[in-house]
Simulated assay, not measured.
Amino acid sequence: MADDDDKLGPLKTGLSDLLESGLFSDLKICCRDGTVYNVHKNILCAQSLFFKNALNPSSNFLEARSNTIKLENDDPAAVKALVEYFYRFKYTTLT
């Protein structure tokens, strides 16, 4: 019988491919160092209450209308780790 990692392998590969390609992305995360991540609302909102609230179409948040989230006060390395975790379920260790 296959273990959970074997069953989730295609999903993990598919999510990683979406992050790398930006295909079907509907949201941009902008960092203070100029890095922009082309991401997917469904993936972020399914895993984060912050993104779910900020991107809810019925909210009054600008991000829900602009499809851009500026994380200019956050460490770009931390944002990278966050995005990696949402798509790969692991992240590069911060130094």
Rank of each mutant, 00 (worst) to 15 (best):
S21Q: 02
Y85G: 02
G9M: 09
F61T: 01
A78L: 12
S58C: 11
L71T: 08
T92P: 00
A81V: 05
S66F: 06
K80W: 03
A54L: 13
L15Q: 04
D75P: 03
T95K: 07
L44D: 08
V36K: 02
I69Q: 01
L27M: 07
H40Q: 07
K41M: 06
A2F: 12
L23C: 02
D74M: 11
Y91A: 15
K90S: 13
I43Q: 04
F50D: 02
N60H: 11
F24V: 09
S16L: 08
K28N: 11
R32N: 15
F50S: 00
Q47D: 06
F86K: 06
D6K: 14
L44V: 10
S66C: 10
A46V: 06
I69R: 01
S16T: 15
N53P: 00
L8I: 02
N38W: 05
T95L: 03
D26N: 10
N53Y: 08
L82R: 04
N67A: 10
G14Y: 04
G22Y: 05
L44R: 11
T92K: 01
K28H: 09
D75L: 01
L18H: 02
T13H: 10
Y85S: 04
F86G: 05
R88W: 02
T13V: 11
S58K: 15
N67W: 09
L49G: 08
V36G: 01
G9Q: 14
A46M: 12
P76A: 06
